[in-house]
Design a binder for these strands. Structure first.
Length: 423
RNA sequence: GGAGAAGUGCCAGAGUGGUCGAAUGGGCCUGAUUCGAAAUCAGGUGUGCCUUCACGGGCACCGGGGGUUCGAAUCCCUCCUUCUCCGCCA
């Protein structure tokens, strides 16, 4: 969430930035600032009364000690009256803080100045396009047919044992999956990201920390009995590793990575979007996460995008980079680059990575700070990116590298798969 | 899952109703000493909020939440976590 300081001190710019998202923030800001003013006023009142009470209590103690019992008793009834008043004001103060928090929680992040205006994915800016689309002359089979033909994925078995969106990988399909995970992790490791294997279920505090709660409550699988959520991305446990911490300046940047399965309810999806591997309830992903000093976060973001591009190049997939427009930008992000691979048979782009800078939006919720040069705690900037999400990579690999003799495995991947063709 | 013990600052550890945001030791920072270092000595060393031009002042926080009391780190309730024992188990 945004900090109160930003709302107070930078209101005009904030309102303008949020209008890019198509949000008229004026009403919300007015409400929050009005609450803030009342809260401060109330706090002053409460604090003063409490100071009085504390002082009286001290005196009562002294009076009892020096044996002036009657005087002490008199003071005591006096303070009792004060207590009533404090209690009422205190409750009011608490409710104001809660309302303010709730309102603040509903405000999305402020888009970076480079974010294009726009309403939908059609307005995203294509930053670059790389690699040649294969010429398959209408012969191209979609990945679900190839997966079936070479017995790589059993979608129906998944339906039987779980439901739609839970594919079963088998044989070389399973090996390919494992190879990709290993490949991505090795590359992240080489780029300086420390590997973690985090829990796949997280508590509500963690969900709030990264912003999935309350914004995307319905998108996560919830184990009600234990009040735990299945992670929709490794971002959640990895970023929460530093929740509530104050880091030393020298510790930054912190670079983490991890492979986890990801679980998403994907309520409301339908049609060609969910065909084959396009959109699943469970999928595998390697995630990279960074904690940065604010002045370095945007350079870092570029570095992360470049890392992902390197992976796609080595997989010999045609891809493009998008700068998301304000309308398509996630609630918590300030700037996001999406990377999409070309699906030769479906003849469309598939998103395989989303790399974002959250600035201090998540850090504020997480209360993750570092001690700056002045020795004061300051919110870090958090970033993360998929590097990479597996299913659509597999889809693109199958579709783009298909040929009469089978599916060619890119050279960089062969030492991980142990085979160079799927036939 | 059952029984018991415990959770205090960066760490160790005292404190069991009053002046405790918290003794003491270690660590760390600053200064003195030194050619320099070690050792020694002196001082400093949490976070959030409110208030103040500033100096400063106030409030809250001793696992989380709630309660008793004029007053709680200290008593009570509850939840969480850790440790010990028992049970179960990949």
């Amino acid at each position: 969430m945004l900090t109160l300081q930003v709302l107070r001190n930078d209101r005009e710019a904030l309102e303008k930035a949020l209008s890019k998202r198509g949000i008229n923030a004026a009403t919300m800001l007015n409400r929050i600032l009005a609450l803030d003013e009342e809260r401060r006023h109330t706090q002053k009142e409460v604090d003063d009364l409490k100071a009085k009470q504390n002082e009286a209590s001290r005196e009562i103690g002294d009076l009892f000690k020096s044996g002036k019992k009657e005087e002490a008793e008199a003071r005591r009834t006096e303070v009792s009256a004060l207590k009533e008043k404090i209690h009422v004001l205190d409750e009011h103060q608490k409710s104001l803080v809660q309302q303010q928090e709730a309102a603040l929680l509903e405000m999305p992040n402020r888009p970076h100045e480079s974010v294009p205006t726009g309403h939908s994915e059609a307005d995203n800016e294509v930053v670059s396009e790389e690699g040649d689309k294969p010429q398959l002359h209408g012969e191209a089979k979609p990945h679900w047919e190839l997966a079936d033909q070479y017995k790589l994925i059993d979608f129906e078995a998944g339906v039987k044992i779980s439901g739609a969106g839970f594919p079963v990988y088998r044989g070389k399909g399973a090996k390919l999956q494992r190879a990709l995970i290993q490949f991505f992790l090795d590359r992240a490791d080489a780029a300086g990201y420390e590997e973690f294997i985090p829990p796949h279920l997280v508590n509500p505090d963690s969900g709030r920390g990264t912003g999935q709660l309350p914004d995307k409550e319905g998108q996560m699988y919830h184990c009600v009995e234990d009040d735990l959520y299945l992670i929709p991305t490794a971002e959640v446990p990895l970023t929460n590793l530093y929740r509530g911490d104050i880091l030393a300046e020298e510790e930054l940047p912190v670079q983490l990575c991890g492979y986890t399965p990801c679980f998403r309810r994907e309520a409301g999806s339908y049609g060609k979007d969910v065909r084959g591997l396009n959109r699943l309830h469970q999928f595998d992903k390697v995630e990279i996460v960074r904690f940065e000093k604010p002045e370095n976060s945007y350079a870092s973001l570029d570095g992360m995008v470049e890392h992902v591009r390197g992976l796609l190049r080595d997989l010999e997939l045609p891809f493009r980079t998008l700068r998301l427009c304000a309308g398509d930008l996630g609630f918590t992000a300030a700037l996001t680059f999406d990377l999409e691979v070309w699906s030769a048979a479906q003849e469309r782009w598939l998103e395989v990575s989303s790399v974002s800078n959250f600035e201090s939006f998540q850090a504020n919720r997480l209360q993750c700070r570092f001690r700056n040069a002045a020795g004061k705690p300051e919110l870090v900037h958090t970033l993360n990116g998929s590097a990479l999400a597996l299913p659509r990579i597999v889809a693109a690999l199958l579709e783009n590298h298909q040929g009469p003799d089978g599916i060619r495995i890119p050279a960089a991947l062969q030492r991980y798969t142990g085979f160079d063709t799927i036939s």
